[in-house]
C-alpha cells in the first residue's frame, strides 16, 4: 500500500518514550484537535454570520439564541479558540524545557512559533467579528497602534481594516482575514509542521546510544492514545460549552462606544498594560516584537544543549533558554494580572 500522510505521521512502531504523556504533555496533538473543531464549528457559523456592520452583532445573537444548537456551536468555537492559545503556549514551553528545539528541529521550531502568532491573530479577528459594543476600543486602539509604525503605519492600517475609521469600518476585512487570510496559512503551516516532526526523526528523545528505555509501541497503540486524548479534551470542551457561555454584548449603534469595554481581550492584556508606560510604538510594537525575536532566536544564538540532553526535562545544558522563556512567561502573566486588576 502507498503510505498516506496518516502513515507518515504514524509509523509502524515508535519509541515508547516519544509517546509518553509526561514527555510531550500531549499539547501539540491537542492543538491539532482544537483546530479541527475550530474549522468545523467556524464553517457552521458561516451559514448564519453576516459580515456587515448593521447585521453582524444581530446575526451572532441569532446564532446564539435562535438557531438550534447554535449557542452550543458558538461556545465550542469560542472555547476551542481560547484553549488553543493556552495549549500552544504549553507546547512551546515544553519544547524549550526539554531542549527539543535543537537542530535538526530548529526550522520546525520557527514553524511552530509562526502558528502560535497566527492563532493569536485569529483569536483577535474572531473576537472582533462579534461587532458588539465591547469590541470597539480594542479594535480602535489596536489599529491606531499599527498607524504608529514609522513609514509603513498607514499602509498596515489599511491592510488590516481597509481604510476609514475602526468601529464604523473594518468588519469586512476582519472577516476575510479571519476565515481566509489567516486560516489558509494556518492550514499550510500546520500540515508542514506535522510533516517535519516525522522528517526530523519524531518527537525529540535522547539518541539511541544513551537511551535507557528502548521499548517501542505500535501504530495501534499510538492511535489509541491519541483517541483517548481527543476524548478527554472533547469532554472538557463540551462541559465548558454547556456551562460557560461565550461573551456577548449589545450591538453597536451610533454613540454607544462610550458604553463599551475598555479592556483588551485576555491574551492582549499584557500589551495593554505596557502601553500605559509611554510611547505606543516602543511599548506596543517594538517591545512585543523584541520578545518574539528573542524566543525565535533560542535555537540559533543560545548555548547549544548537549545531544544526550535532548528530550529530557530541564537539562543543565540549556539552562539559559529555560530561564529566558520562564522569565518571559512570568512577566507576561504578571502584566496580565496587573491589567486585569485595574
Amino acid at each position: 500500500m502507498r503510505p498516506s500522510f496518516f502513515h507518515h505521521l504514524h509509523p509502524p512502531t515508535i519509541p515508547t518514550e516519544q509517546a509518553r504523556w509526561r514527555h510531550t504533555l500531549g499539547a501539540g496533538g491537542t492543538a491539532v484537535f482544537l483546530m479541527l473543531i475550530l474549522g468545523m464549528t467556524g464553517i457552521l457559523e458561516m451559514f448564519y454570520y453576516i459580515p456587515t456592520p448593521e447585521e453582524a452583532a444581530l446575526s451572532v445573537q441569532t446564532i446564539t439564541y435562535h438557531v438550534p444548537f447554535g449557542g452550543f456551536i458558538r461556545n465550542l468555537h469560542y472555547w476551542s479558540a481560547q484553549l488553543l492559545l493556552i495549549v500552544s503556549a504549553v507546547h512551546l514551553l515544553r519544547v524549550v524545557f526539554t531542549a527539543a528545539y535543537k537542530s535538526p528541529r530548529r526550522f520546525n521550531y520557527l514553524l511552530g512559533l509562526a502558528l502560535f502568532i497566527l492563532a493569536i491573530l485569529l483569536d483577535f479577528t474572531g473576537y472582533i467579528l462579534r461587532w458588539d459594543v465591547d469590541i470597539c476600543y480594542p479594535l480602535l486602539t489596536g489599529t491606531n497602534l499599527l498607524k504608529t509604525v514609522p513609514f509603513i503605519g498607514d499602509f498596515l492600517h489599511r491592510l488590516a481594516i481597509g481604510g476609514g475609521e475602526a468601529c464604523t469600518n473594518g468588519l469586512l476585512r476582519m472577516y476575510v482575514w479571519h476565515i481566509f487570510g489567516l486560516t489558509l496559512p494556518v492550514i499550510i503551516l500546520g500540515i508542514w509542521h506535522a510533516f517535519r516532526v516525522r522528517r526530523d526523526g519524531g518527537i525529540a528523545v535522547p539518541p539511541p546510544q544513551v537511551r535507557t528505555d528502548n521499548a517501542r509501541i505500535s501504530r495501534n497503540e499510538l492511535v489509541r492514545r491519541e483517541v483517548l486524548a481527543m476524548f478527554i479534551v472533547g469532554i472538557a470542551l463540551i462541559l465548558l460549552s454547556i456551562f460557560v457561555p461565550a461573551p456577548i454584548a449589545a450591538a453597536m449603534t451610533e454613540g454607544t462606544t462610550l458604553a463599551g469595554e475598555a479592556k483588551a481581550p485576555w491574551f492582549f492584556l499584557w500589551v495593554q498594560e505596557m502601553l500605559k508606560w509611554g510611547d505606543p510604538f516602543i511599548f506596543g510594537i517594538l517591545l512585543p516584537l523584541g520578545i518574539l525575536a528573542l524566543i525565535a532566536l533560542i535555537p540559533y544564538i543560545f548555548p547549544k544543549p548537549a545531544d544526550s540532553d535532548i528530550g529530557k526535562w530541564f537539562p543543565k545544558s540549556n539552562r539559559l533558554a529555560q530561564i529566558t522563556i520562564g522569565l518571559v512567561s512570568f512577566i507576561v502573566i504578571l502584566l496580565t494580572l496587573l491589567a486585569n486588576a485595574n
Binding site: 476600543y137 480602535l140 486602539t141 491606531n144 497602534l145 475602526a166 462610550l258 475598555a262 502601553l275 500605559k276
Partner: peptide, 20 residues
C-alpha cells in the same frame, strides 16, 4: 491623543479608560 479611546469627564478634567 494616545490611541483614540473616548475620554470620560471627571472633577479635574478628563480621564481615558484605556491606558489611564
Amino acid at each position: 491623543t494616545h490611541l483614540g479611546c473616548t475620554l470620560e469627564p471627571n472633577n479635574n478634567g478628563f480621564a481615558c479608560p484605556c491606558h489611564n
